[in-house]
């Protein structure tokens, strides 16, 4: 008798099914790759979905130029290992305009470097489907997000006009100029992600593991001073602490947590005992009430 499927195998099956549908039905799909844990899981699933072939689409890194240096190293290592076609895009207009995470305010900075950067890249390459690693559990406005999420010509999300999504039959028809965002990890939770990383022995960016790192306190956050660009107060010196990250964003905006967890089981154990949600460490969600919903309407993942 065949064994019952485990929840992780079911989630894996669903994600692979979605990826294959998109590869079959769209002309120019792309997979976003940020080097974070969800991205790493998504890449792992894509490698499985098209085995023994390679994923039939390129990967895209929206490079704000402010990622952790460990992120760039990890990205390059993964790309080389699997022979991926990686595209890197930076919003050069914003760089030229002097936008940066310190002086511009996190809202304006994110809008320009992440969102505008993403839209530029989608437009430049005429991508009609873009995979993102977002999960419904992450945030209130994501709970009602479709797996195939439609965007108009201006890449905007119209929550008043969403298509019903039934069974695992995805309507892939779009009109010229329109595109979709695809969320193959929609039904995964943070715990599922970690459990799957553990089960499948997926390589992760080392920042997820606790290590002594130089940090400064910017209340309420601990910021890892990742390079010489970080502005320190006169006489201020970073202190070295045992820290790790629950999520990875731009280093000046991503809070670290103090931790001794330097193995996957320890991280998972710590996660189980956490009393704060994952996104609590990100500045971007707190700028204004309902800010995620607003960003999504504008085209953010």
């Amino acid at each position: 008798m065949p064994k019952a499927m485990t929840h992780l195998k079911e989630l894996e099956a669903e994600s692979i099914h979605i990826m294959r549908e998109v590869a079959a039905e769209f002309e120019r799909p792309v997979m976003l790759f940020s080097s974070g844990k969800d991205s790493s899981v998504m890449l792992h699933l894509a490698l499985k979905a098209f085995y023994p072939g390679k994923p039939p689409f390129p990967f895209l890194h929206i490079d704000t130029t402010w990622d952790f240096k460990e992120v760039y190293a990890f990205r390059n290592q993964v790309v080389a290992k699997y022979g991926l076609n990686l595209l890197v895009h930076t919003n050069m207009d914003a760089i030229r305009a002097g936008i940066n995470p310190f002086d511009s305010g996190s809202a304006k900075y994110t809008h320009n470097m992440n969102l505008q950067g993403l839209l530029q890249a989608l437009k430049q390459h005429k991508f009609d489907a873009a995979f993102g690693g977002a999960r419904r559990e992450e945030e209130k406005s994501r709970a009602k997000e479709r797996i195939f999420s439609f965007r108009d010509k201006h890449y905007q999300w119209d929550p008043k006009n969403q298509r019903p999504e039934m069974w695992n039959i995805y309507n892939a028809r779009i009109n010229p100029g329109e595109s979709i965002r695809v969320f193959p990890l929609s039904n995964w939770t943070e715990l599922d992600i970690w459990q799957y990383i553990f089960q499948e022995k997926i390589e992760l960016c080392p920042l997820y593991f606790a290590a002594p790192r130089p940090v400064v306190r910017r209340d309420p956050q601990l910021i890892y001073v990742n390079d010489e660009r970080y502005p320190l107060a006169a006489g201020e010196a970073p202190s070295v602490r045992h820290v790790r990250f629950r999520t990875l964003g731009c280093y000046p905006l991503t809070g670290a947590i103090e931790s001794q967890a330097d193995t996957l089981p320890k991280i998972i154990e710590e996660m189980l005992l956490f009393r704060q949600s994952e996104r609590a460490g990100r500045a971007i969600d707190h700028d204004e009430q309902g800010s995620m919903e607003q960003k999504k309407r504008e085209g953010y993942f």
Binding site: A4, M5, T6, H7, L8, E10, L11, L191, Q195, F198, Q199, P265, K266, I268, E269, L272, L273
Partner: peptide, 22 residues
Amino acid sequence: VETFLHNEDIHSYLERNQRKEL
């Protein structure tokens, strides 16, 4: 979870969690 982790170590938790149904 705390009660559980108090009684059992994380490795056995992970192993058991691996067998969950959906």
